[in-house]
Design a binder for these strands. Sequence first.
DNA 1: ACAAAAGTGTTGCATATACACCCATGG
DNA 2: CCATGGGTGTATATGCAACACTTTTGT
Lengths: 216, 216
Amino acid sequence: MDINNPLYKNQGIHAVLSLFTVEDGKFKVFLIKRKNQPYKDMWTLVGGACYNNETIDDALKREMFEKAGLKNINFKMFNVYSNPQRSPLCRMIAIAYVGVIDSNRVKYLKETNKTQDADWFLIDRVPLLAYDHQEILQDAIEFLKEKIFDTTILKDLFPPNFTLPQLHKAYESILNKQIDRRNFRKGLLQKNIIVDTGKFEEISGKKPSKLYRFKI
Amino acid sequence: MDINNPLYKNQGIHAVLSLFTVEDGKFKVFLIKRKNQPYKDMWTLVGGACYNNETIDDALKREMFEKAGLKNINFKMFNVYSNPQRSPLCRMIAIAYVGVIDSNRVKYLKETNKTQDADWFLIDRVPLLAYDHQEILQDAIEFLKEKIFDTTILKDLFPPNFTLPQLHKAYESILNKQIDRRNFRKGLLQKNIIVDTGKFEEISGKKPSKLYRFKI
DNA sequence: ACAAAAGTGTTGCATATACACCCATGG
DNA sequence: CCATGGGTGTATATGCAACACTTTTGT
């Protein structure tokens, strides 16, 4: 590769995260509102450009913190978007990630140098997004649905101790369909990824449910 | 993103293909031998750097042709490698792909501007590879094994008309384990992705086997 | 005792596995 | 008629889907 060939110049790498949560049984995605051009005043997924001395994972962590004050979030890569026209100022490829987090435990900033607002949006109330983030978000939802049963991608969605009815509602909300309670419980328990803590939740008006935790 | 920030400069995008075949029941990968620095005289996977006016898929097609004369090969992305030190001259991220092809039908060049040799290698006789291609190749093999049963990733491995014993041997060779002939056949046929052509192979010394083709 | 939600077990069906014999061909 | 490999079916086990009643708690 001829390092001075202009065809290799002026291209960058973007890390883009579709960060999801389930709040009150509602499936939501985290968006930020841009302060600057291009796409000033528009909502986007969290993310930003990768420096030449960091991995893309590290770039995403840094950008999450810079753009929204987010820390300690796990994520998983699922696709790459490389249409040369997908970003206006300069050719940018996007490396797309999915993350799932408990919205009650995560701290974020409504405003930073680069963002004027940030919030959780109901999946079916997502505004028009900048860049090709609409498409990326749709693919992220598909990816999450695919992985929800055979991976622990939801492990950060709840506090360390959570109940099965909570988890059950989260699955139904993400998959957007009903799941039989008994079969859900049976299937999950025999996967051997969660364990009974022996404790119970402390909520009144009904039978208290057992608290479980992820083994990992 | 400040387009003039030096931290965004001097980084490129590499497309890297692990191209596989099964020949005489042996699982093989296609490698090329570099003519130039860095890693002069070493073997690598096929691939090359992406121009700023093409998608990464297009870059891979172009590079396959330039470096090995390869044309019309299908492939699927499976991972991204972004350690800043993975390439010596300049920071290059690698977008990694897997492809599977019939080695008898594919034409390739032993020598081009950039390559001094090219060949199929038995998986357990792969030489030391340049860059981090050893790791990429291992991940590619894992990915192929995962996809072999629920996708048509092998559809280009054989001529349009192929026999089930052929396909059976290919699966055994790639997965490196024995598979019951009857169950293999039953399972594959009920997936409904191949159809009986009504024709038979013309080889002697045994009962001729039926020819099938992929539906897609 | 009632409302609200948690917890549990059984049966049928579909899918996957294990396994053995007969068939067509060329020599 | 024999050697080679191709083709088929059945019985069992395992995993998944459907489904209804009992338990605990607070009021």
